[in-house]
Amino acid sequence: MTIWTHLAQHSFEETPRLFLRPPLITDLAAFHELASDPQNVTYIFPAQASREESLHLWTHAFLKHPLGTWVLEDPHEHRLIGVIRLEKIQESLRQAEVGYFLHKKYWGQSLMAEALSHLCQILLESGGLESLSLQVHLENTASQRVAQKAGFELLRQFKGSDRYSRKMRDYLEFRRKRGRYE
């Protein structure tokens, strides 16, 4: 089984408090609400000023290649509250980088850690991937807590260029491997 067939088989998942599913064009309004508030996306991408900017980003970053992208859906409101996405998938090494963001209304409830833990269990323990990594801005302590709650361990600290501002920033890299940690 390839990584892609594995991802396809796990496109729809459920945790005790969330539905995890592929992104849809009908998520645009909820995505724009989240993406237009700078507090929600401080460490992810520039806030989207208009619905058209949000449509462009949503289409090209999330809808275009949906495998490996999960919308976190509130099962009561039936709307997008966050996203987890695999990036830099390396099929031959069976590894990927994971990124995520969550609407600030849901911060502090461990929802992202719940979703990330669930996906890690599926992706790592059932044979899809060998390792997952994630990079967090040094000052983003909330995301560091999410990574640790989801079973990631700190691998290293490094300086890197922010992909949007091009300014040098301090980052932490976390990794979780199948069956054991580095």
Score class of each variant (00 low, 15 high):
L57Q: 12
E114S: 14
G68F: 08
A113T: 12
S110R: 15
S133Y: 14
E114V: 13
L63K: 14
F62V: 00
L86P: 03
A142M: 04
D74F: 09
A113Y: 03
T141P: 00
Q109E: 13
L102S: 12
P66K: 09
G99M: 07
L119T: 06
W58H: 13
A115Y: 05
I122H: 08
D74H: 12
S143H: 04
V136T: 08
Q135L: 03
L102P: 10
S131D: 01
L138T: 10
H118Y: 06
I89R: 09
L123W: 15
I89G: 00
I89W: 13
L134A: 04
E114N: 14
L116P: 04
H137L: 09
P75L: 07
I84W: 01
G127M: 10
H137E: 10
T69S: 07
H103Q: 02
Q135T: 15
E91R: 08
L119C: 03
R94Y: 08
F62W: 14
L86Q: 04
V136Q: 05
E114Q: 14
V71H: 06
L63R: 15
L57A: 09
V83K: 08
L134H: 02
S131W: 10
L102F: 10
Q144D: 04
S92I: 05
Q121S: 14
L129D: 01
E114M: 14
H78C: 02
E73I: 06
G127D: 03
Q121T: 15
Q95L: 12
L129V: 06
P66W: 13
W70M: 09
N140L: 08
H103F: 02
L67S: 07
G127P: 02
H103L: 01
M112Y: 03
N140Q: 09
L116Q: 06
L80P: 11
N140Y: 05
G127E: 06
L63F: 14
Q109A: 13
L111D: 14
E139W: 03
M112H: 06
E114Y: 10
L138K: 08
Q109F: 05
R145Q: 10
S133R: 14
G82N: 08
S92N: 07
E77H: 14
Y106R: 15
F62Q: 01
F62D: 00
F62C: 01
S131H: 05
G127W: 12
L72N: 10
S110C: 13
H118K: 09
L116V: 10
E130H: 15
